[in-house]
Simulated assay, not measured.
Amino acid sequence: MPRPPEQTPADDAAASFAPLRPRLVRLAYRMLGSVAEAEDVVQDAYLRWHRTDRAAVRDAVGFLTQVVTRLCLDVLKSARKTRETYVGPWLPEPLISPPAEEEGDDITLTLMLALERLSPLERAAFLLHDVFGLSFDDIARTLDRDAAACRQLATRARGHVRTARPRFPVSEERGLAIAGAFFEASRSGDLAGLTALLADDVVFYGDGGGKRLAALNPIHGAVRVARFFAGIARKKPAASALLAMQSIDGLPGFVSQERDGPQTTALAIEDGRIVAIYVVRNPDKLRHLPPPAAAAPVH
C-alpha cells in the first residue's frame, strides 16, 4: 500500500493556521472596522506563522492573537489620520450574516462606533479581555504594558461601551419585522408610517465616503429623518429592490439594490422604536458583499 506523501512545512503551517483563521479575522475586524483590512492583517499573520519555528511555539492561539493585535495597532495609526479627512460620517464596513447566525459575541455596530472613540490600546485591552477572554497577564505581553495598566485600559473602555449597549434590546424576529416595515415605508414615502417607526430622538447616519450621494452630516429627530426618506422616495420612485433581510453587525437590517448601486441599512432599536439608522453606500466598503440575486423593485 503506497505511503501518504509527507506533509511539507507549507502544508503544516496552513493546516495549523486554518482552524484559527475565523477567530483571528473576527479580532482584526473588531479592531479595525474593515473586512478588507482585517483579511489583509490575518494574511500577514499567516506569512509570519509560516516563517516561525512553530515547534517552539507552545500556544499557537496566544502567539497569533498577539501578532494580529500588534499588526492592527500599526494599521490604526494610519487609519485614524485617514478617517479625520473622511467625507461625511464614517461607518464600519458592514459585516453581514443571515438571521440567527451571529458571530458569537455581542459587539454590534453601535458598540463598534463606541470602540472608535477609544484609544487603540483601550480598544485592544477591552476586546482581548471582555470579548476574547484573555487574561490581563497575556494582554500585558501583547501590548507591552504591565497587567495593572492593561486592567485600567479595559476598565476605561468598558465605561464608554456600557453607555452604547441597548437598555431594551429587541428580539431578532421583532427586529427584522421592524426592518421590513421600515424598508416598505421609506421606499414608498409613507411619512406617517415612517414617523410611527422612529423614536423621537432617532439619528440617521449615511456613509457615502464622497463616492456616492449621501447626507454629509447626521440627521437628528423623527420628523427630519422621516421627511428625508420621504423626499428621496418622491425623487426616485420604485428605485429600490430588497435583496435580503440580514443581520448587519448584530443589528436587524437589510441589503438593497438602489438605482446607483447596493447599500446596507442597519437599525438600532430600543423599546420597539428605531433609535439609529446606519446606511453604508460607499462602494469601497461593499466589495465583500455577495453579488446580488435577481430581485424585483419594490413599488
Rank of each mutant, 00 (worst) to 15 (best):
M1C: 12
T8V: 01
S16N: 11
R21G: 06
R23P: 11
A28P: 09
A28M: 11
D40Y: 07
V41R: 03
Q43F: 13
D44N: 10
D44P: 10
A45Q: 08
H50V: 12
A55N: 15
A56I: 10
V57A: 11
A60Y: 05
V61I: 04
T65L: 12
V67M: 06
V68D: 04
R70A: 00
L73C: 06
V75C: 04
G88M: 02
L91Y: 01
L95D: 02
I96P: 01
D106V: 13
T108W: 00
L109Q: 04
E122C: 05
A125Y: 05
A125E: 07
H129M: 02
V131P: 08
L134F: 12
D138E: 10
R145D: 07
A147G: 08
R151W: 00
A154S: 14
R156E: 07
R165T: 06
P166H: 05
S171M: 09
S171P: 07
S171T: 14
E173I: 12
A177F: 01
F182Y: 15
E184W: 00
E184V: 02
A185G: 07
G193V: 00
L194M: 12
L197Y: 04
L198I: 11
D207F: 09
G208S: 11
G209S: 05
R212D: 06
N217R: 15
P218C: 15
G221D: 15
F228W: 15
A233K: 01
R234P: 05
A238H: 14
A239K: 03
Q246A: 14
S247T: 15
G253D: 03
D260W: 15
P262F: 10
P262C: 02
T264R: 01
T265H: 02
R281H: 08
L289H: 10
A294Q: 13
A296H: 09
